[in-house]
Computed example of a mutant assay.
Amino acid sequence: MTKKHRAFLKWAGGKFKLVDELAKHLPQGERLVEPFVGAGSVFLNTDYDSYLLCDINHDLINLYNIVKNQPEKYIAAAKAMFVPEMNVKEQYYRVREEFNQTQDPFLRSVYFLYMNRHGFNGLCRYNRKGGFNVPFGSYKKPYFPEKELRYFSEKAQKAIFECVGYEQAFDMSKAGDVIYCDPPYAPLSTTASFTTYAGPGFSLDDQALLARKSRHTALERDIPVLISNHDIPLTRELYRGAKMASIDVQRNISQKGNSRKKVAEVMALYDHHYQDVID
């Protein structure tokens, strides 16, 4: 059993628990392209020759490039924030305020990890003006992920990080690539609202456009695309023509611990080998 590697960030919808199952559905290829890299669990637990890892969250990509290129400087600066006197509400809100006012990439990356570990539920959320607005989390002793940072930095030597939307990530892919998409989840019901990770939300139109882009990329460019999402009638309809598999996952849907339930996840693989040609 190979050791699983955890991401150094807490992340809503992170794929750590799913990664073994998910890897079984990923085709072979030279390079893995991820248009929605998130915390990077799939990148950390797969073994491709190289990686193109994309996200529209500028802070995330900036952080990854700094961890890749300046691990020692970054770890020293970030670790200094993980002390008891910084684990108080007043300090957290002071840091959040400074984060929202500075454009300094290194400082923002240090503050980002601090807020990720000290903020409520590890959420990453911005207001309409682009200000980070997650409240204080009140944790006894936030964990400083030093060994996870070191592993990420080492593995990142095989990766290129780009702050681009998913369409551009697809356009940057080439023969020999495999694309894995982990978009913001489709809502379980029409009343469930989307979690906005960065910028405007990912709408139902976006879900449909992503499915279409995936199908065309597999058919016309012979680049296989795997998408994961909630396994619900809506996604089954969106991914018609793909090879589909369902896996169970413990998902923390509710704040109440006792109502956390298993929601199946669909793995939809677009590959020209077994495609129903539909449009």
Rank of each mutant, 00 (worst) to 15 (best):
Y139K: 13
H118M: 05
E98W: 04
K147G: 05
E167S: 02
R117H: 13
V110M: 07
F170L: 03
E167C: 00
S138F: 04
L113V: 13
Q157T: 13
K158S: 07
F112G: 07
G176L: 09
T102I: 05
F132A: 04
V178C: 00
E146M: 11
S109L: 00
C163S: 15
S138E: 09
F132W: 10
H118Y: 15
F170W: 05
F120G: 06
G130R: 12
G131T: 00
K158Y: 03
G165P: 01
F161M: 04
G165W: 00
P135Y: 03
F120R: 11
R96C: 02
Y126H: 06
R96V: 02
E162P: 01
R117A: 08
F99W: 04
G119E: 07
A156K: 01
Y166C: 07
K140V: 00
A169K: 03
Q157A: 08
P142M: 08
F152V: 13
R150P: 03
G130I: 09
S153G: 15
E97G: 07
G165A: 12
Q103H: 14
G165D: 15
F170Q: 06
I160D: 15
F112Q: 10
S109Y: 09
K158R: 12
G122S: 14
E97P: 00
P145V: 10
G122T: 11
Y151S: 11
P105S: 12
M172Y: 00
P142W: 04
D171M: 00
F152M: 15
K141T: 02
K155Q: 06
D104F: 01
N116C: 14
I179H: 03
E97Y: 12
S138P: 02
E162I: 10
D104K: 08
K155V: 06
C124V: 14
V178S: 01
N100C: 04
C163W: 09
F136W: 14
R125I: 08
M115A: 14
G176S: 05
P145H: 01
V134L: 09
Y114M: 09
S138N: 15
M115S: 08
R108G: 07
Y151E: 13
M115V: 13
N100G: 02
K140R: 11
T102A: 07
L149T: 02
N100T: 05
V110W: 03
E146I: 13
F106N: 12
Y151V: 07
F106E: 11
